[in-house]
Each structure stands twice: as structure tokens, then as C-alpha cells.
């Protein structure tokens, strides 16, 4: 994963609560066996007027002009603001893949669903929790000023407005570290191989029925 650097980006306002991952990336696109290429189908049902099909070229599809991501003023946006419980529903990691593939690097909301929140960090997408009041304020700012942008500074845990306001946010230190350094979780966990092995032997002694029962049938001779 790339290191997560400080950046400044246009903000797209998605003024809805409970945006679910079925909306972020509808199921017909989950048939892909790749991690990339989901951007054109991000929010497919809201973005286009027709029904999207997997592996279809989206460039000629009729656009829903009202939808935020189709409005000229938000083109090139990399920060999204939304309402509470963003990313609820299915655990599909295709949701953060679609958001990052489209170009988003951060989503700001008053709250996120747990699984989406977790998946985002693993894909270079920073979910930022800010209070309802501040989110309200950001929505107002975005609606008022064309080209409204925010600077996201993960190292210092602040979002900076162009008006010079610095809004602090919380982030889990481990996740922050992994994002900033572009680290792979698996590599970090494998540094604890000895601890895992030690736990495993103890666990097997206490609960032997958990081990050695499931086998691929090709392996059963």
C-alpha cells in the first residue's frame, strides 16, 4: 500500500444517512475477481439512469445529472462528506475499492458502520468521524462555495478548512501508523508468529476438537 500523505481535495457532499454498501457498489459488480476497476460503478444506481451491467463500458450511459458526482462543481473530488452510519450493510470490501478507484481518499461522517470503517483503513481510504455539528457546518460550506476543498493531514490528525480552521479528529494509533507508513497488516502480524504458535498449542490442548477435523476430500485417502 502507498504511504498516506497529506493532501488537499475538493469535497463532494452526499447528504444522506445510512448509505449502505449495496448503494456504494451494487451486487452485479461483485462478480469481478479483481480489486480494481470498480470506480465507474461507484453509486451506480444513483449515478446513471439505466441499470448497470458488469463489464459494461459506462462512458455512453445516461447520467443522472442531479447526482452529486455528476455535477461539474464536484468533479475531481477526493473527500466525501456524508451523514451518519455511512457504509452500513454488507461487508463487501468492494465498497472502499470503488471509492478509492473513483479517487476518494477520505470520507467524513458523524459515524460509520464497523466493517466498512475497518475495511477502509486497509485500502488507503481514511474514514474521519466528526461531530454532527461540524459535519453540518461542512455541508453548509460545500453548498455555499464552489470548489470548496479541505486539507486532510493524518499525521497531525486535523482537517484544515480554507478559512484557516483546523478541525481535530481521532484515529486509532495502530491504523494511523499502518496508513502513514503504507504497511501491510499481514506482515506485522507474522512478526508475532511465535506468539500465535504458542497460543495454538495451548488452545489445541484445551480444545482438541477444534483441530484436525476438516479436510479437503482430495486429501482423505
Amino acid at each position: 500500500m502507498e504511504k498516506y500523505e497529506k493532501f488537499s481535495g475538493i469535497v463532494a457532499p452526499l447528504d444522506r444517512a445510512n448509505i449502505d454498501t449495496d448503494q456504494i457498489i451494487p451486487k452485479q459488480f461483485l462478480k469481478s475477481i479483481k480489486r480494481t476497476g470498480f470506480g465507474p460503478n461507484l453509486f451506480d444506481e444513483w449515478r446513471y439512469l439505466d441499470e448497470g451491467l458488469p463489464e459494461q463500458d459506462c462512458s455512453g450511459r445516461p447520467l443522472n445529472k442531479e447526482f452529486v458526482l455528476n455535477q461539474e462543481r464536484y468533479s475531481g473530488s477526493s473527500v466525501m462528506v456524508a451523514r451518519k452510519n455511512f457504509g452500513c450493510g454488507s461487508s463487501r470490501e468492494h465498497a472502499p475499492w470503488a471509492l478509492t478507484d473513483f479517487g476518494f481518499k477520505a470520507v467524513i461522517a458523524p459515524s460509520f458502520a464497523d466493517i466498512f470503517f475497518n475495511n477502509s483503513f486497509k485500502n488507503g481510504l481514511l474514514p474521519i468521524v466528526l461531530s454532527e455539528e461540524i459535519v453540518d457546518e461542512l455541508f453548509r460550506g460545500v453548498f455555499e462555495a464552489e470548489g470548496y476543498s479541505l486539507e486532510v493531514d493524518l499525521a497531525n490528525q486535523v482537517v484544515n478548512t480554507r478559512g484557516g480552521k483546523s478541525i481535530p479528529f481521532d484515529v486509532d494509533p495502530f491504523r494511523k501508523h499502518c496508513l502513514l507508513e503504507g504497511l501491510d497488516d499481514i506482515g506485522i502480524t507474522l512478526e508475532d508468529t511465535d506468539a500465535i504458535k504458542a497460543f495454538e498449542s495451548k488452545h489445541e490442548a484445551a480444545a482438541p476438537w477444534v483441530f484436525n477435523v476438516i479436510k479437503a476430500e482430495s486429501a482423505i485417502k
Partner: peptide, 20 residues
């Protein structure tokens, strides 16, 4: 509980999850 695809890979590779 449910996990994302990166965690599927993590569990396959390490038999563990990083949790809070």
C-alpha cells in the same frame, strides 16, 4: 462476525485477526 476481503487474506495467512 463478518470480515472484509483483506481480513479474509489475513486470516488465511495468520489464523488471526487484529481486533479491538
Amino acid at each position: 462476525h463478518g470480515i472484509g476481503t483483506s481480513e479474509v487474506e489475513h486470516v488465511l495467512a495468520t489464523q488471526c485477526l487484529i481486533q479491538k
